[in-house]
Design a protein around this nucleic acid. Structure first.
Lengths: 233, 233
DNA sequence: GTCTATAATGGGATAGAC
DNA sequence: GTCTATCCCATTATAGAC
């Protein structure tokens, strides 16, 4: 199909999306890094709003304030640029799972995970949308990341949750499906923001919506797991 | 922007996507209806896999086993065909809310709603993906439906849930955000199926996955609402 | 490194025969 | 009503001047 194999680097410690700069380009150069970030920011927005096929290099160039040819100079092709955007998003999300460790109180750990995920939905909704779009269309670019690094992380966290359950510290919930629900319940405030705004009759997703949403998700999930919220929130 | 206004029919009883056949075409004709369904099925699949921009009329035609020009004969433009696909999906989903009525037991009502929604994720994942894609990209075609009919339905069901809470029949949960969580937790098994399969290490989403998923979502949400599952499920 | 101009492709839409 | 052949535009990518 496509060259998705080049994304998979099972021999390396980190199974991220791999080498994303052009073959001949050295990574250094403060100016280069700044230009790349400028282009990635613009691309994230356009890919989020239009999808991969709907996005145009011209549109990304205009949003970045650069001529179109510069994008090709820095990233070669539209697909490479798209993969670079995805890689940045995965880097962003990988850390939230660190809260789920055996020694921590389950209620505190889950509340912290929800807080972090809601934070990214609030501050980086465009990144979330690009990722959602990629998954809906069958994950052609990130399939190896999902079945590799992400699967191993989920397996590890599944054991943590099973440990909590075995110790009687929370109700017997399917750990993997609990995580699916956590992903869905938090990311919906970024991905489906248009629907939520519409049915709430709001022009914008303000802080107060996210405050209520965070309290709701935390309370509902923790009660669902037989836990009490750690704080008055 | 676009002609979204034509979708809004505030004076009619039903705020669906409105007249979707071509202006001159009479609706009758058994053969016509069959051909339209054939095209809509193919279009749903291609739009789900590729998005609106990524989908090609050629690809839809091949999937339907028809020449490309026939699609234009029946639906005029690509956008009209896309709107017809969306309209069919909304018709499909509108009924699940009927379970949430004041006189019914909250646990039974919510469990029935979850069951129906999981059923659609299981049997019509492509439809769910087309809708998800539309919302992620800002709901350009269904904005009026969301802020019209769907908002009114949600407002009505909010009052039902508030009634249950006021009567002490369930825990005090924000009704609207509860619905957002229900939508997210059920539709994720259709929309994010590629991710779920990848991290579960499965080639296909079989019945057993949906069985576990349904039990999980029902149990977690009902406990989160301070309710006990109505059956042994 | 940056930009203009252009080549090459792909796809939506339609004309017109049957 | 159905289908083939074709038009025309938008878009990716690149050549080559600066």
């Amino acid at each position: 199909m496509n060259d998705a194999e080049t994304l998979d680097q099972p021999d390396e410690t980190d199974e991220t999306l791999g080498s994303l700069s052009r073959p001949g380009a050295v990574s250094g150069g403060r100016l280069r890094r700044a230009r790349e970030a400028q282009i990635l920011d613009a691309a994230e927005g356009v890919f989020a709003e239009a999808g991969f096929s709907g996005a145009t290099m011209q549109g990304i160039a205009e949003r970045a304030g650069l001529p179109k040819a510069n994008l090709h100079y820095y990233f070669g092709t539209k697909e490479t640029l798209y993969r670079a955007v995805l890689a940045r998003i995965l880097d962003l999300w990988v850390d939230a799972f660190d809260h789920l460790v055996p020694e921590r109180d389950p209620a505190e750990a889950l509340a912290a995970y929800i807080r972090d995920k809601m934070h990214w939905s609030r501050t980086r909704p465009l990144a979330s949308k690009v990722f959602a779009n990629e998954i809906i269309h069958g994950a052609p670019q990130v399939a190896d990341y999902l079945s590799g690094k992400l699967k191993r992380t989920l397996d590890e966290k599944t054991r943590v949750i099973e440990g909590w359950i075995a110790a009687g510290r929370m109700a017997p919930v399917d750990p993997r499906h609990l995580v699916f629900t956590l992903w869905a319940a938090t990311q919906t405030y970024a991905d489906f923001e248009a629907q939520i705004r519409a049915v709430l009759g709001r022009e914008t997703m303000d802080d107060d919506v996210f405050l209520v949403a965070s309290r709701h998700v935390t309370g509902l999930i923790l009660r669902g797991c037989g836990l009490k919220p750690p704080r008055g929130g």
